[in-house]
Amino acid sequence: MSNKSIGTTILGPGTLTLGANTSMHTMSNQVTSVKLVPKVDREKGLTVLSGLKKGGARSESWTLEGKFLFDLGTAESTSDYLFDNRGQDVPFTFTPATARGTTFTGTLTVESAEIGGDVDIDNLEVDFSFEVQGDLTKNKPGG
């Protein structure tokens, strides 16, 4: 019998911040879902007459996606921050589970989220999606 265990990580408690220290916006209290999503593109490459192959180039890009609670007009509103900073490239830090200590950092382009919804109900969740610009960095505890 193997002594290996199955490992899982539950998301949260964690943090998600956008912007530099002087203008940092914390989304952690509004976010209900968040994930970094990779996209990999690979060129087909070439095969020459001898049968040898020259591999195609590989490129990778990321988006930060999720949902947050619609909060237009509230103190420290995420809806307002996204609208006011749309199109801006800002640093971000995402810590999926503080107890695990791993963080992801980089720069993303802020995009506004939907504003409004159905009348006379609590319009809770709004989707967001931001393109990560350049490299995504994984920072492990103690290393």
Rank of each mutant, 00 (worst) to 15 (best):
Thr105Ala: 12
Gly51Trp: 02
Trp62Pro: 08
Thr95Gln: 07
Gly55Asp: 10
Thr103Glu: 14
Ser61Ile: 01
Phe104Ala: 09
Asp41Ser: 13
Phe104Gln: 11
Tyr81Ala: 08
Phe70Thr: 00
Ala57Trp: 01
Phe68Tyr: 15
Thr105Gly: 09
Glu43Trp: 00
Arg100Glu: 11
Ala57Leu: 13
Leu69Ile: 15
Ser61Asn: 10
Asp71Ile: 04
Pro96Leu: 13
Lys54Val: 07
Ser59Met: 06
Gly66Val: 03
Thr95Tyr: 03
Gly101Trp: 02
Ser59Arg: 13
Arg100Gln: 12
Thr98Ala: 15
Leu46Asn: 11
Gly51Gln: 05
Gln88Glu: 10
Gly55Lys: 12
Gly73Arg: 04
Thr47His: 05
Thr74Gln: 14
Ala97His: 04
Thr47Arg: 15
Leu49Tyr: 03
Pro91His: 13
Gln88Asp: 11
Thr105Arg: 15
Gly73Ala: 00
Leu46Ile: 04
Thr47Ser: 14
Arg86Gly: 02
Thr105Cys: 07
Leu49Ser: 14
Glu43Leu: 09
Gly66Lys: 09
Phe70Trp: 02
Ser79Phe: 04
Ser61Met: 09
Ser79Gln: 09
Lys54Ala: 08
Phe68Val: 02
Phe92Gln: 10
Ala75Gln: 11
Arg86Asn: 06
Asp71Met: 07
Lys67Met: 14
Ser59Ala: 12
Thr78Tyr: 01
Phe104Ser: 11
Asp71Asn: 12
Pro91Ile: 06
Pro96Glu: 08
Asp80Arg: 10
Pro91Gly: 09
Lys44Arg: 12
Arg42Glu: 11
Ser61Cys: 00
Val48Pro: 02
Glu43His: 08
Thr63Ala: 11
Arg58Ile: 15
Ser79Trp: 00
Thr105Glu: 14
Lys44Asp: 07
Gly56Leu: 08
Pro96Gly: 11
Pro91Thr: 09
Gly56Tyr: 03
Gly51Asp: 02
Thr78Ser: 14
Phe94Tyr: 15
Ala99Val: 09
Thr103Asp: 12
Asn85Trp: 02
Gly56Gln: 09
Thr105Val: 13
Asp84Gly: 03
Pro96Arg: 12
Leu49His: 11
Gly73Cys: 10
Leu69Cys: 12
Arg100Thr: 05
